[in-house]
Design a protein around this nucleic acid. Structure first.
Lengths: 242, 242
DNA sequence: TACGATTATATGTCTAGACATATAAGTCAA
DNA sequence: TTGACTTATATGTCTAGACATATAATCGTA
């Protein structure tokens, strides 16, 4: 019944208040829509100032666990946006993390003025230079994914001199272009003859396709298409809060 | 040069401070590793109390945009975990949001004691009752996805009396089971004869597979496998933060 | 009954202090 | 040079107030 935990704690008071409330929400004791105690009630219960309680509630609100409404109170939020955190690591890091030997092979690299197709793929209007890269990643010498990438040189001029024969472009970009936004589109296809050969699978075998479009501050950086053998590779996403 | 915006603003001061800093980070003006001004410097710059600055910085820290280190200062964070927010809406909501007509068809519903296969799929040890559901979702009368679901009745007893002939189990669960965690595995297969018929596609056509495993507080709730036609359906994920 | 004005109230923001604490940096001795 | 000790400092938390503001509830009126 009592909110306050009397045990001697290391965590600070506002963190304890936040954890207490979070626990009640996560266990379902306070279901979506439930009104949590008013600030002044929590102040009385924990014997602290309003700012301390306010900090705890503000953080819960920032984490979308509760919703605060003036005059009405604070309420447990309904699982609103069913979303998942999809971990799409840099492929080299991903393979290394699995404890497998990473292999990289540059198939082609072309620096050219952007064609109409390039511009459409990057979603830009102005003509400029681009780098088109095709490469293959492998794990323990087994093909893992083939990559087909376009980099907008006007956004990332330094890419022109990067050595993509040794370092995969995804890894290079990750370390040279900070704070990007991206959009992923996931779909499935069956392997055509070229894809089948590159991935060493049968023609007609299923492939998982990830199209990623990356930008920073409304500025296109790169567009990439990744093809994985569909039956071997798995994307794992964990989500919380829905 | 000046951090302060002199224009008459609606937003409160701490929000303006936060936005100012966020902008500098997102534009790359303050790259990863850059030390942002000390609290006392911002206090001087904005002419406010330390608590106001502290609130702005605390929120940036909670959003993982900056890292705060005692005695050292606050630093722009490196794009650390390459992750994406994958929106996987409830299928009915997803189709409705697209402005298309939603159709639902219950194929089978069985209430049974959990078999060994069921227990393994749910990741539970104890035997108990489960509901096995097979159903199909359609958009404008075109098959959209087929669903094969298992619900652990010991976790969700009320599911036993739910009417799944009219409401899809995913929607029902979303509204009756709050705050869950889930793990998604995405892969690709080619359609076998049964799948091909259910989705009205050719045998051997690509299919996108989502396996979702949902629990709450270490308690399994449901395991579901969704099959989408691979060339028509697209999962879109946006991510932000490196 | 329906609508408009008033009021009460919970949250939102802010201040000017305080003490705690982790730790970078400097100091000094072995 | 290395290690141990000290100190300065930036952040972390907290208080006891204040006024602002959105809005649910109430009351009065058409």
């Amino acid at each position: 019944m009592s909110l306050a935990a009397d045990s001697a704690d290391k965590p600070t008071l506002y963190k304890r208040i936040r954890a207490d409330i979070e626990k009640r929400i996560l266990t379902g004791e306070w279901p979506p829509g439930h009104r949590i105690p008013f600030e002044h009630e929590l102040v009385a219960r924990y014997g602290c100032s309003r700012m301390t309680v306010n900090k705890a509630l503000s953080e819960l609100a920032q984490a979308d666990l509760i919703e605060r409404r003036r005059r009405a109170g604070s309420f447990v939020r309904r699982p609103q946006h069913q979303s998942a955190v999809l971990k799409i690591a840099d492929i080299r890091a991903e393979i290394t993390a699995l404890g497998r030997g990473y292999g990289y092979e540059l198939i082609s690299r072309k620096l050219r003025a952007a064609t109409a197709v390039d511009r459409e793929r990057l979603g830009v209007r102005k003509a400029g230079k681009v780098i088109a890269i095709s490469c293959r990643h492998s794990a323990d010498n087994v093909p893992f994914a083939v990559e087909d990438r376009l980099i907008d040189l006007s956004s990332v001029p330094s890419a022109a001199t990067a050595d993509f024969s040794r370092e995969p472009p995804g890894s290079w970009l990750l370390h040279h272009v900070p704070w990007t936004e991206a959009e992923h589109t996931i779909s499935a296809i069956v392997a055509d003859d070229r894809t089948a050969e590159a991935l060493d699978i049968a023609i007609g075998a299923p492939c998982l396709v990830i199209d990623r479009y990356t930008w920073r501050s409304a500025r296109t950086i790169t567009a990439v298409r990744l093809l994985y053998p569909g039956d071997s590779h798995r994307l794992v996403a964990r989500f919380k809060g829905g």
